[in-house]
Each structure stands twice: as structure tokens, then as C-alpha cells.
Design a binder for these strands. Structure first.
Length: 341
DNA sequence: CGCCTTTGACCTGCGC
DNA sequence: GCGCAGGTCAAAGGCG
């Protein structure tokens, strides 16, 4: 059994190194090169060449529901206890990479660190995309630190850690949907404590906004889709069942399902990455995803309730902000600003 | 030579 | 208390 898995894994690895780097134009766009140079220009290039289809953060809880794989979620749930306890500090539910609320992550986990982590983990963002690549490139640099076979899913789950920042503890899990292997599910967790590429910021803004909306109760139901009207009003072409928020989970989960085909959208082929041909052939236009994200952001933030919630959230964050957080939050601050505006 | 991936082992939490 | 599953660590090997 393990041997089989190994084979699969190995194959996957080879694919990654060889060619499967589906760079998601939407996130890679401009910043790839820029951001990459921040740390290890060399490493970046290498990474970029590998299989990455970039997106942002995926939340597996949602994924679980959608895909039925129920892998990642399992482990995440246990954190709910801690999250609840710590939630006061991060009641906004902003994904870490968005707010930098979390002081920092380190290999050494003190009590405080753990607490911070919990906070960061509160909000997750899942992105489901249809792609042949082993990973989506979201503009950040990731280092693989583990891989595991998840129960109920023949595809291995890969664990990545952000290496763009020295102590950035943002992590992401990449796994293929058990029911539809062509669907790549990426779950992001934590906050970036460093500057993010423009595309990454856009994504972060969108997801954070959604998370905020969810937590603030702006959502009509604890478990549902973002109001299509809101999204569409902002011109979000893939609004139909594309973004899903879940408040029923231990922590807020945002799922961006980019695999679904909108019922009405002449832009579908261009703005949604769901079509196999788009991913498969990697023809997606660079600006499309960014535009989509921007539209989503605008849509989400256009909601008065959300805005109010966001203000409250930010206020709360500021009130409970930690000195250390501020320093590393340059980026986050920007993101927050974006959200507010 | 340095960085990254691979992978088995270990740790932790949850359900029974 | 035990077993299972997920997540992380760290040594070894590979690649550029």
C-alpha cells in the first residue's frame, strides 16, 4: 500500500520538477519576478519553473464538503478549541496572510506562538481550481515540508511553507479532489509577515473581505454562498457558486471554487479558470484572474454590511494589535487599507 | 555548494 | 486507554 502511494508521489514529484508548473497567470502576473527577487532570486526561479498553478488560499473544510475527501478538515477541526479560546484577539477572522495579526511563526512553538498560530489558523481560504499542475502559483515562494496520504483520497496531500519571509509561517496544503482528480484544492493558512505581490494582495483582499463578511454575520446563512447579487453587481463573472463561506466550521472558511461553470457569463472562458482547456493549455490570460479577484474584492467590499463589519474588525484588530505585529504588518496594513477602501 | 524534495518517524488530537 | 489520522520534523539524496 505504501509503495503504491510512494509511486504516486514520486510520479507527482517528477511532474512537478519537469513541467507541471501551471503558473496561474492571475497571481503570478507581475509579481512573480519582483517578489521572488526579495529572497532568493535563484530559488524563486526554480520554484517558478516547477509545477505551480498559483492561487491563494484554500480552505479545506469547504473543500471537504465540496469534494467529499474530508482529509484536511479532519486535522483542522481539532484546532477549533484553541481557536475559540484565542479568538478574541482575532475575532475578525482575517486570514493571517491578510492581517499580519499574528506576531510571527517560528519553528519553536512557545505557548504564545501556539496561540498566535491558532489565531492565524482561524480563517482559512480554499481555492479549488481545475488544473493539471501539481500546484498553483500564487506569487509566493513555498517550500515543501511534507507530504501525506490522506484517508479517502488516493492523491497525496502536500504541505508547503511560505519562504518569502524569514519567519513567515503561512502554510498551505495542496491536494487533488478525491472525486475529481482534475480539481486541485489549495488551502492557505496563516498570515504573511512580509510584502505580498500585487496579485497576492488582490487575492488576499478578496478572501479577507469574504472572511470578514462571514464572521461579521453579513452572510445570510452560516453556511452559504456569497450573495451572488453582490458579486454580480460588481461584475464578478464567476459569482455563481464560486465563493463559499462557512461559519459552521471550527473557523471561518472561504472557498473559492474556480471549477464551477457560471450559468451566465460570456466571460466564463476568459475569467474563470474552471475550463479544462484553460488550465490544461495554460492559456489563461495574465490579467484575467487578477481582474476577477479585483472584481470579487469590489463586490465583497461593496456590501455595506461587510464594510461595517470590516471597520469593526479592523478596529478590533488595532485594539488588540501586538507591537510585534505592527512591524511585520507593513504588507498587511496595505491589505487592510485596501479592504477598507 | 546551497537549496529543495522526499520520506519515514514522531507528535498531537480525536473518536471509540 | 488505544488506535487512527493528520500534521510536522529532520536526515538523506538530488538538482541546478
Amino acid at each position: 500500500m505504501q509503495k503504491e502511494h510512494k509511486q504516486e508521489i514520486n510520479n507527482g514529484a517528477k511532474e512537478e520538477k519537469g513541467k507541471n508548473v501551471i503558473s496561474m497567470p492571475f497571481l503570478e502576473m507581475n509579481f512573480d519576478k519582483e517578489e521572488t527577487s526579495q529572497q532568493s532570486p535563484k530559488g524563486k526561479e526554480i520554484r517558478e519553473k516547477r509545477n505551480m498553478v498559483d492561487l491563494m488560499e484554500c480552505d479545506n473544510q469547504k473543500t471537504k464538503k465540496i469534494c467529499g475527501s474530508g482529509d484536511i478538515v479532519h486535522k483542522l477541526e481539532p484546532q477549533k478549541k484553541m481557536d475559540n479560546e484565542i479568538s478574541p484577539t482575532n475575532n475578525n477572522g482575517f486570514p493571517g496572510w491578510l492581517t499580519n495579526q499574528v506576531p510571527r511563526f517560528n519553528s519553536f512553538k512557545s505557548v504564545d506562538d501556539k496561540a498566535s498560530e491558532s489565531m492565524i489558523k482561524k480563517a482559512r481560504v480554499s481555492v479549488r481550481t481545475r488544473s493539471e499542475a501539481t500546484m498553483i502559483s500564487d506569487g509566493c515562494q513555498w517550500r515543501k515540508y511534507g507530504q501525506k496520504m490522506a484517508k479517502g483520497n488516493p492523491s497525496p496531500r502536500a504541505y508547503y511553507r511560505c519562504t518569502m519571509g524569514l519567519n513567515c509561517l503561512v502554510r498551505k496544503q495542496v491536494q487533488r479532489c478525491a472525486e475529481d482528480r482534475s480539481v486541485l484544492v489549495t488551502t492557505y493558512e496563516g498570515q504573511h509577515n512580509h510584502a505580498l505581490p500585487p496579485t497576492a494582495k488582490a487575492m488576499a483582499s478578496t478572501t479577507s473581505a469574504a472572511a470578514s463578511m462571514l464572521l461579521s454575520g453579513s452572510m445570510p446563512s452560516a453556511d452559504g454562498y456569497i450573495n451572488p447579487a453582490i458579486l454580480e453587481s460588481a461584475g464578478f463573472p464567476c459569482s455563481h457558486s464560486m465563493a463559499t463561506l462557512s461559519a459552521s466550521a471550527p473557523f471561518p472558511t472561504i472557498t473559492l471554487d474556480l471549477t464551477k461553470k457560471p450559468t451566465t457569463s460570456p466571460f466564463y472562458d476568459h475569467n474563470c479558470m474552471s475550463t479544462p482547456n484553460i488550465f490544461g493549455s495554460q492559456i489563461m490570460e495574465p490579467a484575467t484572474f487578477a481582474e476577477t479577484v479585483s472584481a470579487a474584492t469590489a463586490a465583497v467590499t461593496s456590501d455595506p454590511k461587510f464594510t461595517a463589519a470590516l471597520v469593526a474588525a479592523i478596529t478590533s484588530m488595532i485594539g488588540s494589535s501586538h507591537p510585534n505585529n505592527n512591524g511585520a504588518n507593513g504588507t498587511n496594513g496595505d491589505q487592510q487599507s485596501n479592504n477598507t477602501t
